[in-house]
Amino acid sequence: MTRLLDQTYAIARRRFLNAAWTTGAEVASFPHPVRGREGEELAIDVAVLGAPNATDVLLIVSGTHGVEGYAGSALQSWWLDECSNRRPEGLRVVLLHALNPVGFSWGRRVNEDNVDVNRNFIDWADVPRNTGYGDIADLLVPSSWDDEAQQMTTAALMEVAGEAGPGRFQEIVSGGQYDHPTGIFHGGSGPVWSNRWMHEHLAEIVGGAQRLGVVDLHTGLGPWSHGELISHHARGDPGYQRGTDWWGEVRSMHDGESVSAALSGDWLGALDGLLPDVEVTSAALEFGTVDVFSVLQSLRADAWLHAYGDPTGDEAAAIRAQVRASFADDAPAWLEALIARFSAVAGEAVQALSCSADSRQI
């Protein structure tokens, strides 16, 4: 059977919940305080298979960047349909659906506050500074988005990128900024709802974990359909080494080897503080879609729409479609490639955790 991406958050959520209930998973839903674009209920949904006292746990997360949840949700539902009955006894598997449900519903990467959830997990007593972003903030998100403004600001940004170099330009634009709340890759002014939820509930949903594997599902960077495993650790760190032991090739965002720039406030980087007594092996699994220029243009258009335009007006549908195309390819071949890669990554994590359990029994 050919699988397709769902077209709305509500449909994707229903598919995930039905798949979870069919497998006999324990399901808990945590409603978001705001409604979705179509008035629908929004929630973080958690499906769990395995005993709460299991010491080996695999956590699979979708929708950290809302619109990227279309692919992440499809992969989670596929796993429930096809792999849940092969879960090793003693392994607890937790599927967290839509960490950022507002962005998922509205077709945005960001949340209800225009905050990038994956830049929000910082030490708020020591907020990172990104002065380079301020120099180009008005070029990235101008007050007008007509053809003339797009051409002028895009040309100016390309000039800046040429002077700074592609790596430094990516870091300035996407590494995280905390001074321009209507801009892109904004990390917020304090912990947002998804962040607070994680602090309150993560320890509960991973139960008695002593060893935790985490796969955070993302799209939008890298070659079409290629799934790169990205570590928030630097080379040589124990977490990086565990990742390579589990999966083979893992790329560090801090050493210039990844499609991702080094980030401020990514939630995987906060796990050691959230779960201080747990050995965590984590990676973001990033699937490529379109070229990086198209991705940037879609984010600029979306930020303009919500800062200066009308998110429910005539221009909104075309911009939402532009954003979706940058993060979710509706071609069946794209999803088939993602499933194959995700199947391997999840399988390797299951094997690593199961081998860990076996070694303790010898």
Rank of each mutant, 00 (worst) to 15 (best):
D113T: 07
T289N: 05
G222R: 02
V67I: 15
D45E: 08
A325G: 11
T244H: 09
T23G: 03
T2H: 11
W197C: 06
F342Q: 03
W246C: 10
S264H: 14
R320C: 06
D216Y: 06
C355Q: 09
D255K: 03
R242Q: 05
R300G: 08
G288H: 00
F293C: 08
D302E: 15
R109M: 13
V110Q: 14
A349W: 07
H226A: 15
D113P: 12
D146Y: 01
D179T: 15
L5R: 08
R324A: 05
A155S: 10
L80E: 04
S258H: 05
A12S: 14
E204F: 03
G183N: 05
A303K: 00
T55M: 02
A303F: 01
T22C: 12
R14M: 07
A164N: 02
G269D: 04
F287Y: 14
S264F: 14
C355V: 07
P191R: 06
H201K: 11
V46A: 09
E348Y: 14
F104T: 03
D291L: 09
H218Y: 04
A54R: 02
S143E: 15
L99F: 05
M198A: 00
R360N: 11
R87C: 13
R320M: 13
L275Y: 00
F185S: 07
S174A: 13
F30D: 01
S356C: 14
N195L: 11
L217C: 02
S356Q: 14
S144L: 09
L58A: 08
E41Y: 15
P311F: 06
F185Y: 10
A28Q: 15
D272F: 06
A284R: 04
S282L: 07
P276G: 02
W247T: 04
A161S: 13
E336I: 12
P101K: 00
D330N: 07
A74L: 06
I339A: 00
W304A: 12
P223K: 05
I11L: 11
R168Y: 13
A155T: 09
H97V: 09
T312M: 12
V127Q: 04
P276C: 03
N195T: 14
D81M: 07
G269Y: 03
D56L: 10
E279H: 13
T289M: 04
V57T: 12
E336G: 15
D245P: 10
Y70T: 02
D6N: 13
G187H: 07
Q297D: 03
V173N: 02
A349E: 09
R37W: 10
D126Q: 10
G90T: 12
L139S: 01
A161F: 07
L263P: 01
V323N: 05
